[in-house]
């Protein structure tokens, strides 16, 4: 019986912490200005979110087609095996990220100030 109580406490604490963290992130994050393309952690391109454009990200692993439209960034096409990046909903808030693990590609939203991540991720 006490095992079940411990189970419930553990589950509740994890859920509460996660929901609190998520709410905190949602309230603190603001609309970003740039979509930044990182390949294996290195910035290779950045695009202002207020200008519609299309860009093919080429890596050793393959290609991902990044689209900027209506102030949001998303991946239209990719030849990676899982296609998770293509399924991802468009991003526009600071810190939001689309990741393509097979190609090592990360597209993340940043603001004008390079240091401003919208939320201190370490905190």
């Amino acid at each position: 019986m006490s095992k079940r109580r411990n189970d419930i406490i553990l589950t509740a604490v994890l859920l509460l912490a996660a929901v609190a963290g998520l709410l905190l992130f949602k309230t603190l994050s603001r609309q970003g200005d740039f979509a930044v393309v990182l390949i294996n952690g290195e910035e290779t391109a950045r695009f202002p979110l207020d200008t519609d454009t299309e860009f093919v990200i080429e890596t050793d692993g393959g290609v991902n087609t990044l689209v900027i439209a209506d102030g949001k960034a998303y991946i239209k096409e990719a030849n990676c095996p899982d296609g998770i990046c293509v399924d991802h909903t468009p991003i526009s808030r600071i810190g939001e990220t689309i990741t393509c693990l097979p190609h090592g590609v990360v597209v993340t939203v940043k603001s004008e100030k390079a240091s401003d991540t919208g939320l201190d991720m370490v905190a």
Binding site: L15, A18, G41, T97, T99, G104, V106, T108, M121
Partner: peptide
Amino acid sequence: LLLETAEIGYYMFILAI
């Protein structure tokens, strides 16, 4: 670590749920 991008850490909140 591999992608050298701390930003994706925010996924963890949703993944924890």
